[in-house]
């Protein structure tokens, strides 16, 4: 197996008496796309928040590219190459789409930047084009629809050149044609070495995109397998996929 980019061991998190993550272990290799699945309340988003430094872990260790980022700040996690998006991204009212996308690449810009004009470069235009945002590029970012909002947040995260991109339900509200485009774009970044960890409920998207799936239920990992193996796992069927699989109605 290739060297691990992200290595999580025994990570736990509780909110009061409610244990949301129970000694979770998993890893991601560079250039791997892993889906994180599970019913609502299974701990997917909490896992993402803990890994990205938005929530402290109660126990366990998180290593990213050989650096210990357990309970590191989001800024430190990002400095080691981890960039995340949010389930319900909110965008600024007084910045254009183009400016938000530019901001993805400017997190290191200090005061020295006042002496030189930054450039909206070709990569920015390519991302706008790929995510079909060129026609709205000069509108306030908050004026975008819910689906476009998701697209902009994924594009902005990609613009910051992550080693590990963590996406939280990136296709919710996005038009089906664009989901296919998103799969193509994300695979292109994977081929360039970016690892992706995606929380998603759309099984078609998961099947097209991911090489591996991790399924969480009540804070525990109940499966870690290829997407097409999920329906053969009775625990996954019971906890997440439901009886439709048994009747052969699933999209998988």
């Amino acid at each position: 197996m290739a060297a691990k980019l992200l290595d999580i061991k025994g990570v736990s998190k509780s909110f009061g008496a409610h244990r949301v993550l129970d000694a979770v272990d998993f890893s991601i290799a560079p250039g791997e796309i892993v889906g994180l699945l599970g019913p609502n309340g299974s701990g997917k988003s909490t896992a993402l928040n803990v890994i990205s430094g938005f929530l402290p872990a109660d126990g366990g260790s998180i290593r990213l590219a050989d650096a210990d980022i357990t309970n590191a700040s989001p800024q430190r996690a990002t400095a080691h190459g981890l960039v995340r998006t949010f389930q319900l991204p909110s965008m600024p009212h007084k910045m254009t789409v183009r400016e938000v996308l530019q901001a993805g690449a400017s997190s290191k810009a200090g005061l020295g930047s006042i002496f030189s004009a930054f450039r909206f470069d070709e990569e920015l235009e390519t991302l706008l084009e790929a995510f079909r945002l060129t026609h709205v590029a000069d509108l306030p970012a908050a004026a975008l629809s819910g689906g476009q909002n998701k697209l902009l947040s994924v594009a902005t995260a990609l613009r910051s050149k992550p080693k590990l991109l963590c996406l939280d339900e990136p296709t919710a509200g996005v038009h089906p044609n664009l989901r296919a485009d998103m799969v193509t774009i994300l695979k292109r970044y994977r081929d360039a070495g970016v690892a992706i960890r995606v929380v998603e409920h759309d099984m078609l998207f998961i099947r097209d995109l991911c090489s591996r799936c991790v399924v969480l239920d009540r804070g525990e990992i109940i499966a870690d397998c290829a997407p097409h193996e999920l329906e053969d796992n009775p625990r996954v069927v019971e906890a997440y996929l439901g009886k439709a699989v048994e009747k052969g109605k699933t999209a998988l």
Partner: peptide, 13 residues
């Protein structure tokens, strides 16, 4: 970005 969406700013580093 800090003024309007501090969470987004933090997620971008």
């Amino acid at each position: 970005l800090m003024r309007e969406e501090p969470q987004l700013a933090r997620s971008l580093g």
